[in-house]
């Protein structure tokens, strides 16, 4: 029996009232593993994690964090239940320095803050070197690194990331994904949106495929790699009937 840390039950969500983007989506995230959501453009992948993070309103269904129902919680309350979310773009404060970005997320850590900041700088040496520079001046890979560091600062159990490797060089993307793997191996539970299907399937444990706001298929990442069905969803955008 898997230990499920986060699950959604039949959630319906969308930006505008009466126009749902997600229809009855149920996913669950096992402890200390990586689950990845893939699907064609416009499938509602980002919307799903934004709905969980409290940014997109959920009109029906429930979201559970462990045994606690977190449906309708504000985004700023998510840290309190151990959920961190790293948006795809604009995920750092460009006008603050790197040090200030970290100080900001560590503001409630009290006496521990200095120590935790130091730990993060040791974990991400490039950030340490540029700690007094404006975050807006960082390269794409370093920005992503800072965004992850900010998420880690609050020691979350669950980390949700929206295409952390998008727009990065293959080398930087590989580093970011390796970092995600390390985090999962270290006990974190990670829910990821990915655009790059092959890459995602190679390093994830579990995979959900979304198309047109509906759950199409899911399974162990290893099993899905060679499944012809995936190709069909991407190429034809076909519905797969009952999920």
């Amino acid at each position: 029996m898997l230990d499920i840390v986060l699950k959604t039950e039949n959630i319906v969500a969308g930006y505008v009232k009466g126009l749902p983007i997600l229809h009855n989506i149920s996913v669950s995230l096992p402890r200390a593993s990586i689950s990845v959501i893939i699907g064609p453009n416009g499938a509602g992948k980002s919307t799903l994690i934004k709905a969980i993070a409290g940014i997109v309103p959920v009109s029906s269904g429930n979201i559970f964090c462990g045994n606690k129902c977190i449906t309708g919680m504000r985004p700023d309350q998510m840290g309190g239940v151990g959920i961190a979310y790293v948006p795809q773009t604009d995920n750092i404060f460009r006008t603050l320095t790197i040090g200030q970005n970290l100080d900001l997320v560590l503001r409630h850590a009290g006496v521990e803050a200095v120590e935790r900041r130091q730990v993060l700088f040791e974990q991400f040496p490039p950030l340490s070197d540029k700690r007094n520079e404006k975050a807006g001046a960082l390269s794409g890979g370093q920005r992503q690194m800072l965004a992850v560091a900010m998420a880690l600062a609050v020691k979350p159990e669950i980390i949700m990331m929206d295409e952390p490797s998008a727009g990065l060089s293959p080398k930087a993307a590989g580093e970011v994904l390796q970092l995600v793997r390390d985090l999962a191996d270290g006990g974190a539970s990670i829910l990821l949106v990915e655009q790059n299907v092959n890459q995602a399937l190679q390093f994830a444990d579990h995979c959900y495929i979304l198309a047109e706001g509906q759950h199409q298929i899911d399974g162990k990442a290893n099993d899905l790699i060679n499944d012809p069905v995936i190709g069909q969803i991407y190429i034809g955008g076909k519905r797969m009937g009952a999920a």
Partner: peptide, 8 residues
């Protein structure tokens, strides 16, 4: 028609 504002 407000349209679909999905950003995926």
């Amino acid at each position: 028609q407000t349209g679909d504002r999905a950003q995926s």
